[in-house]
Design a protein around this nucleic acid. Structure first.
Lengths: 207, 207
DNA sequence: GTCTATAACTCGATAGAC
DNA sequence: GTCTATCGAGTTATAGAC
């Protein structure tokens, strides 16, 4: 967007609207959010939302695209890197949990979006260059063949790792109830998981 | 509900409404669903929804309570059982994945509900007798003390297991894109996970 | 660009006939 | 119990003044 570079970043009206929409949409979803609420959050008038983004749908897509566009490269970069397997998994877990800690509403936002409107997601939000896990798969197979790790199906391995990183955030309130934790205890617990999940995966991969 | 026993089950108007609401709410959530759509699904008039359930909110709570009420005992029963640890984990994974396979929309429904309205969930949907994981935790500690499994923090272990069982269903469309699987391949993959997750956890617990 | 006012529409809920 | 008709609130979106 060349448009945005021509003015002070972060406080243009368009940017204020975008930021407000980002916050409201991620917390309430497309259906739960209203244009009025977004306008209030941005401290401006409702009509201005339409002036800049025409429709609620377009504003939503703009936010969704930005979120996905930020989330995917981070994963991509690690998965497709040339690091040795163990180091790669270590960094992947650390980065993944770190990112989600700083943006706790994003995973559920993405999941809900994809589940409710798969076509819209694929056609107008998802970027074309998805992470290609093939290199990672080959790497796992090679380590297995060399006897350096226990035989696992690489697809399941990657799903296991992602699940253990993401789900505790998505299901945080439920986890809190199950474990009887306060909000503060839960924050500590989630931070601990960087180390705990890494050790768990490494232990599972021992030959 | 004594009311329901007095007539043929499954085709009373009240039951038809409930079933239709169950389907629509689990797929679209409270905000995304409309009373009109539920009425159409039930093949009856919109006014009848209000005749039987008064408000959309009450209909929703009725559905949510039924879903939670069915989901919790299944978990509870296994977690609180007297089975040896390994067998308990085995059965837990098998039961959990089995239940979700047959009700793939439920986990996301529950997660979204809890995240959007934690108070409503706790006060008017959640039953009072939640699973108590303490016995499971003690069991894990005992196995560690006896040197039969590797030291792990039991809270993280249970979160790991639940995450690996639930998340692949919640994030199914995303997993499909990442792994490049067809709908049929994904079904096979999810079924495989019963065995794969069990082995993964057992491997991670080896001393 | 930004605002007020309002049109156009959707949705939950009710009234009232049968 | 079940239906049609309609109300009233709330929502997206636009018109038009400044």
């Amino acid at each position: 967007m060349a448009k945005r570079e021509s003015q002070a970043p972060g406080d243009s009206t368009e940017q204020k609207i975008f930021d407000a929409a980002h916050e409201v949409f991620t917390q309430k979803g497309m259906d739960g959010a209203t244009m009025q609420e977004i306008a209030d959050h941005a401290g401006i008038n409702k009509a201005l939302l339409h002036y800049y983004y025409r429709t609620k749908e377009k504003l939503y897509e703009s936010v969704a695209r930005a979120i996905i566009g930020r989330a995917i490269p981070a994963i991509r970069q690690i998965i497709e890197s040339e690091l040795p397997l163990e180091e790669k998994i270590r960094r992947f877990i650390d980065a993944y949990i770190g990112i989600i800690s700083r943006n706790p509403f994003i995973p559920l936002f993405i999941i809900s979006e994809v589940n409710k409107h798969p076509e819209r997601f694929i056609n107008s939000i998802l970027p074309s260059d998805l992470p290609k896990p093939q290199f990672f798969f080959n790497q796992v197979e090679a380590e297995i063949a060399a006897g350096r790790i226990r035989p696992v199906r690489p697809q399941h391995l990657i799903v296991n790792v992602i699940s253990m990183c993401v789900f505790p955030f998505v299901g945080k309130p439920m986890m809190r109830m199950l474990l009887g934790m306060s909000s503060g205890e839960m924050r500590v617990f989630l931070e601990e998981r960087k180390e705990e999940v890494t050790q768990f995966v490494m232990a599972a991969l021992r030959p």
